[in-house]
Simulated assay, not measured.
Amino acid sequence: MFLNLSHLVVQYAGRSRPAVDGVSLGLLAGEIGVLIGPSGCGKTTLLRAVAGLERVQAGTLLLAQETVSSSHRHVPAEERRIGMVFQDYALFPHLDAGHNVAFGLAHLKPAQRQQRVSEVLDLVGLGNVHKRYPHELSGGQQQRVALARALAPKPRLLLLDEPFSNLDVDLRERLAHEVRGILKLAGTTALFVTHDQLEAFAIGDRIGVMHEGRLHQWDDAYALYHRPATRFVADFIGHGVFIHAQITQHGDNVVVHTALGDLNDMLECPLPGAYPDGVCDVLLRADDIVHDDAAPVRAQILRKAFRGSEFLYTLQLQTGETVMAHVPSHHDHALGEWIGIRAEVDHVVTFPRE
């Protein structure tokens, strides 16, 4: 692993609980990792520990197989060769784009410095803005200049702390895809912090979900959505709900009994012995529920959110349990209306009943 965190702990004085509590994760050279979670979960503190801006109380942090943080060793931030892109870009308003990018290149001769500035501005698609000042650039262009400045000294690792949070929603996801392309082209290893799931999915090879200082899962986006390791990850990622279920086995056939009917013939399913009497909660995503007027199960529309090509319906079953469903927007039903639904599930994700 190029970046390797093992059981890392960061504890602030006067706090009863660690801000980062035993986190382990790894990134290969050239991979992009993303930390996501609710406010106060410890993701920015973890990023600052990687940067060398926070000391660790336990565990180890290796960068290119060198221990840079542990309980008895702390390599200063300026000696780690790590680049950072901040939430507010931190561009110097009195310097044009070229001089902003050149700021960390004082060790190079003037001709080499100018060549490197041109290289990275071309890399981020801004080869024509050398002489323009930050106030003359759009938010997206300012963000790219900040990225170019961080890449210019050829850091071993790049850290990005919610770099798109000041931009509008549409621009965020598009810029996330563009930044991913730039980082891949540069071969840069990066660790990125965001609270936006679409950003995380757009940019990350590996995504970590944090809560109360702990890393619940470190995986790709598909696994987080379809195979969440904990109930928190299942609840935090995507649209989904839990409904009561009971698992039984008849010969080789495992059946999950729910208020939506029996789920069987799944690719993956735990055996009844995984839970007392097979009683559990099953996770149902909005894309697991299909609107079907011919289905025997009826549900009442509690809420509807228009998403352009589809509605996101929140539906109440006759048992009182709720599910969510993505429904094509030409199925424009009224609040309070009862519609037919069925489950289309090929693998079951279950958790102990709450």
Rank of each mutant, 00 (worst) to 15 (best):
V10T: 03
A58R: 11
N253V: 14
T230I: 08
Y275V: 01
T194A: 09
N166M: 05
D21Y: 11
V9I: 15
V256I: 12
P93M: 14
P76G: 07
R172H: 10
H195M: 08
R81F: 09
F164T: 02
G125S: 00
H226C: 02
L28K: 13
L28W: 12
G240P: 05
L317C: 09
V50L: 00
F236D: 15
R180I: 00
I247T: 02
A325F: 01
H331L: 10
L198R: 13
T189C: 11
L61H: 11
D262Y: 09
H226F: 13
H99F: 08
V50Y: 10
V282N: 10
R132P: 04
A259E: 04
L215W: 12
V117K: 12
N253T: 15
Q11M: 06
G251F: 03
Q142T: 04
G52A: 02
V75L: 15
R174S: 14
D332A: 12
R353H: 13
G104R: 11
S16A: 13
L312E: 15
S118R: 06
R156N: 09
L263N: 11
I247F: 01
F236S: 10
D161M: 08
A29M: 08
Q115V: 00
A64C: 00
F311N: 01
F86W: 07
V209S: 09
A305G: 01
D293S: 14
V20N: 09
V323R: 02
E178M: 04
L284E: 01
P18S: 14
G37C: 12
D21E: 14
L335N: 11
A202G: 07
V75W: 15
L5W: 07
P38M: 03
L53M: 08
E354T: 05
L335K: 10
V145K: 06
P110F: 03
P93S: 07
R342W: 08
R342N: 12
R116P: 06
M210C: 02
V23N: 11
K154F: 02
H244V: 06
A245E: 10
A245I: 03
L95M: 15
P228H: 07
M1G: 13
M84I: 14
R17Q: 13
R113N: 06
P328R: 07
G40K: 15
I243F: 05
L315R: 03
G59I: 15
R231Y: 04
R80S: 08
N100L: 03
L121Y: 08
Y313P: 00
A202I: 09
S71K: 15
T319G: 02
C280V: 05
A234K: 09
A305L: 05
W218Y: 13
Q246C: 11
T350D: 08
R55I: 02
V241G: 04
A295G: 01
T44L: 07
G40F: 14
Y133I: 04
H347G: 03
V179W: 14
